[in-house]
């Protein structure tokens, strides 16, 4: 008798929780795939394609499907770290095959050399280049992501990538260096993180 009751009780509980889960899966069905959005949010949105995908979102989708997280040179170590934290995987060193981490750059068109071919305009993934056919082009520096996709198509090589320099407005204090590391016996461990 007790066995019967307990089986009934278990059955009831199983049915109840099954119904709850089923209801929840319908009621709280996520719109889109939030993990892709979260990954996309971490990627630097340079849209440079160095990862081998045509833009950051495709790479985000690829990561969500198991692609390694170390293919983004513009994001560099910090992006890899953030992705590792988000996805709870081991952070990997940046894959050199896709490029190196460089300081942030911005494209500058040497305007007297520009022939107005519009090739760079077509290449720019974020529409940060202004100009028209046979007219001189210019880069909207504040919108440029430094992806350097415009450099190759230029037939006259008039686009330079220049690193963004720190100004008084963008400067900020760096972390203090622990003094004792500078003492002789510590000389051998300068590479070690604090």
């Amino acid at each position: 008798m007790i066995i019967l009751w307990s089986i009934l009780a278990l059955l009831f509980l199983a049915a109840l929780f099954g119904a709850l889960l089923g209801y929840a899966s319908v009621r709280f069905k996520p719109e889109g795939d939030p993990i892709i959005d979260q990954i996309d949010d971490i990627l630097p949105q340079t849209q440079c394609g160095q990862c081998g995908y045509p833009g950051c979102r495709p790479y985000a989708e690829a990561i969500a499907n198991g692609d390694p997280i170390n293919k983004c040179p513009p994001g560099g170590e910090s992006t890899i770290q953030e992705l590792a934290d988000l996805l709870d995987v081991e952070p990997l060193p940046l894959d050199a095959e896709h490029g190196e981490e460089k300081p942030k750059q911005v494209a500058i068109i040497r305007e007297d050399e520009c022939i107005g071919c519009t090739k760079c305009i077509q290449a720019c993934p974020v529409d940060a280049i202004l100009g028209a056919a046979k007219q001189m082009h210019t880069v909207i520096a504040s919108e440029c992501t430094g992806c350097d996709l415009c450099v190759d198509p230029c037939p006259v090589d008039c686009i330079d990538m220049v690193p963004v320099e720190t100004s008084i407005q963008t400067w900020h204090w760096q972390a203090p260096q622990p003094d004792y590391k500078l003492i002789a016996t510590d000389a051998g461990r300068s590479g070690e993180a604090a």
């Binding site: 004792y180 003492i183 002789a184 016996t185 510590d186 051998g188 461990r189």
Partner: peptide, 8 residues
């Protein structure tokens, strides 16, 4: 641990 001995 390669820390400066006298300092610590």
């Amino acid at each position: 641990r390669r820390r400066p001995v006298w300092f610590f």
